[in-house]
Design a protein around this nucleic acid. Structure first.
Lengths: 203, 203
DNA sequence: GTCTATAGCGAGATAGAC
DNA sequence: GTCTATCTCGCTATAGAC
């Protein structure tokens, strides 16, 4: 079962996901954790502190997961493939946490908000750098890097909105479809530079 | 300025957007509307009633807007282009309302939730039908229609998350970029059937 | 480290005068 | 149609015993 703090955190994740942060009362969290609400304050300074803990550990875990999946992958197209796969997979496997990270930032006070957004911006920059490098090297079609990165990241992130653990498609299957949609279709030059002189007709 | 009811609604939109639905108090709405909070209950039965009004009118307006933009457009590729343009433009022009529609559904009781989701599902089905038709007719590359529709709709919807009215790109410019990203890159067969026998090499 | 009890406050909603 | 006054409730957080 883990420590009491972990129990509280898990209960909070479920409730923030189901009812939203503001609609969740400390008494709700206490009930689901099988303790009295006053006991929560031994582990967390405030309700916001619980939210902040969830947001930061989720964002850090995502960042570490992607880094690990990219380790040793050199070719820029393959890096992008691995990154999209990892991002989508993480959003299927940690659906509740990432949805909270997406919708409950308004529950943070200024200082905590800045700390979280700094992590998120650094994460997004990794994708923007990959896209820019891919364009430079002629692997990806030219375009507005910022907009393309937003398009890709938001569509991959939104998988958490509709993914159903017991649905038709598994997280791995969806990752594969998205890898293809994003890299093969959305990003890649349909006619790579080095193949421009190679006829596609084989008659 | 409009009617008092419109003033209340506009104030609620701003507050729900900025602070979230649950964090917004009736007294906040009253203050921004220059009336006492008791007076709000003459126009709306409850706080949820205000949210429901915002959600339904926004969804209906989006649906009507897309229908209007597709009127008379026959070719399926052009229909899809018009639909993407319209969806993105609407999400830039009605940023606050659509963000509320995206994140505050948990504030609705079961009956109202079902009414809203029915509208949204019907709207999404229009895109799924267009995609399926485009694939059938050989204009779009084959693929999982549901997943492709989610990918497209979520990336276009998420524009409301990062669009800045006074930013580098206007709503029209973003609509153009997205039309291109979605239809030319993501959806279209990179090598249309009828061009398969036409060499791309011009030496 | 968990408990009972409660302080202190603000919420949504209503009553009834004008 | 808007107001003042208030009801009733549940919230976050704290105090202090065990």
């Amino acid at each position: 079962m883990g420590t009491t703090k972990e129990t509280i955190k898990k209960a909070a994740i479920n409730l923030f996901y189901k009812k939203s942060y503001f609609a969740t009362a400390m008494s709700n969290i206490a009930l689901d954790s099988n303790i009295r609400k006053a006991s929560i304050y031994h582990h967390y300074a405030s309700k916001e502190d619980i939210l902040f803990d969830i947001l930061m550990t989720t964002m850090s875990a995502l960042d570490a997961y992607i880094d690990n999946c990219l380790k040793g992958v050199e070719n820029i197209e393959n890096r992008m493939r691995a990154a999209v796969r990892a991002h989508v997979k993480f959003h299927c496997d940690n659906q509740k946490e990432v949805l909270i990270s997406d919708t409950e930032l308004r529950g943070l006070t200024a200082k905590n908000y800045k700390a979280f957004v700094a992590l998120r911006d650094a994460y997004e920059k990794k994708f923007q750098d990959m896209i820019a490098r891919g364009i430079d090297q002629g692997y990806f079609a030219a375009g507005d890097v910022k907009v393309i990165s937003y398009a890709i990241l938001t569509m991959c992130t939104a998988v958490a909105n509709w993914f159903k653990p017991d649905g038709r498609l598994s997280g791995d299957q969806i990752s594969t479809i998205y890898e293809e949609l994003v890299v093969t279709r959305l990003l890649k030059e349909s006619l790579p530079i080095h193949s421009l002189k190679t006829p596609v007709v084989r008659e």
